[in-house]
């Protein structure tokens, strides 16, 4: 059964169409990321789901229940949806325990609050006030508050944007395990692809008010449905090619791919699919290029190579072997590439 099903959702602010015909299903118990650049309408989606905005058209169901559309507009407090706000929106005049227990009936408050604080690893901090907590702790309070009343669904708005980079990775894991232990369905909004890919079961990539692709992290990264998704998610270089008979010819060789069309094509190559090797020898058709730039990141390196045609391509590999500017290298495709119809681009 789906925890969320959205059909034909539209929402405009004046002339700006923030959400422009979205369909989305999120299965129960899953963590779904709504990924897109800022201004793509993802926060509006969240606010439509939570009930802070009224859709212009379309329906939203949470579980079996229709919450918006078809003449229905359920108030936010009647939807049973927990929400973690971008800046957490913790009540500054209430203690941590009072924040967490805010949505609970009086009788069961104290025992449930202790249980939740235990769950998020903040046992014993119930008497503190939010301003006396670190950013990561505040975030866990917000999460505990959102799941306190065991909602069917939790929405998280850019949940990690307020944390510094070093903290983000560890908090991400914690949040995932808390959500799993609580057994709730979660939809979170982010502009950070790494966050979406590492945390979510399903990623919905949003662009200009529409969902471009929905799939597992591996699917959206490895087999992007559109050229936009391919370039938004991760790095890619574009080379011109030609599709014939279920294969594509381009500067780096011939690959058996059937994109469903013939003729001129754009071939998108991710840097990690490009492998470099030294000098001559070896068999087959290898292309030779010249190293023009190298960026070193410690755990890996990004090498810019100039092809015989003068085009450039990037290769990402582990830190060895060390390449230098001017090195002659052989270039091979060692991974999937994606082919799209050209759009009059570079």
């Amino acid at each position: 059964m789906s925890a969320i099903s959205i059909t034909g959702l539209h929402k405009a602010f004046g002339a700006a169409r923030a959400v422009d015909g979205v369909d989305l299903e999120v299965p129960e118990g899953e963590i779904c990321a709504l990924l897109g650049p800022s201004g793509c309408g993802k926060t509006t989606m969240l606010r439509l789901l939570a009930g802070f905005e009224t859709p212009d058209a379309g329906t939203i169901r949470v579980g079996e229940r229709l919450v918006a559309g078809d003449g229905t507009m359920l108030a936010p407090e009647k939807r049973g949806i927990g929400m973690v706000f971008q800046d957490y929106a913790l009540f500054p005049h209430l203690s941590v325990a009072e924040n967490v227990g805010f949505g609970l009936p009086r009788g069961e408050r104290s025992s449930r609050v202790d249980e939740l604080l235990e769950l998020v690893g903040l046992a014993g901090l119930g008497d503190r006030h939010p301003h006396a907590l670190s950013g990561g702790q505040q975030q866990r309070v917000a999460l505990a508050r959102a799941i306190a009343a065991t909602p069917a669904l939790v929405l998280l708005d850019e949940p990690f944007s307020g944390l510094d980079a070093a903290l983000r990775a560890s908090v991400r894991g914690e949040v995932r395990s808390i959500l799993e232990r609580a057994g709730v369905t979660a939809l979170f909004v982010t502009h950070d692809q790494e966050e979406a890919l590492s945390l979510a079961d399903t990623v919905a990539v949003m662009h200009a008010g529409r969902i471009e692709q929905i799939g597992t992290p591996e699917e959206v990264y490895g087999r992007p449905a559109t050229r936009w998704v391919a370039t938004f998610l991760g790095e890619a270089d574009v080379l011109p090619g030609e599709v014939t008979e279920g294969q594509v010819d381009f500067e780096l060789g011939r690959l058996p791919i059937d994109p469903g069309f013939r003729g001129a094509a754009d071939v998108l190559v991710r840097p990690e699919a490009v492998s470099l090797s030294l000098g001559s020898g070896g068999s087959g058709r290898r292309v030779e290029g010249r190293v023009v730039q190298r960026e070193y990141f410690g755990h890996d390196q990004l090498v810019h190579v100039e092809l015989p045609s003068g085009r450039r391509i990037r290769s990402r590999s582990l830190s060895h072997p060390v390449w230098h500017e001017g090195d002659r290298v052989h270039i091979a495709i060692d991974g999937p590439v994606n082919v799209f119809a050209p759009t009059g681009s570079p």
Partner: peptide, 25 residues
């Protein structure tokens, strides 16, 4: 922050009660 009132609403308070319990204090 108006988000505080929204947070109170998502936690089950009506608009009036959200105002009284969060914004007013």
């Amino acid at each position: 922050d108006p988000r505080l009132e929204e947070a109170a609403r998502s936690l089950g308070r009506s608009p009036t009660r959200a105002f009284v319990s969060v914004t007013a204090p």
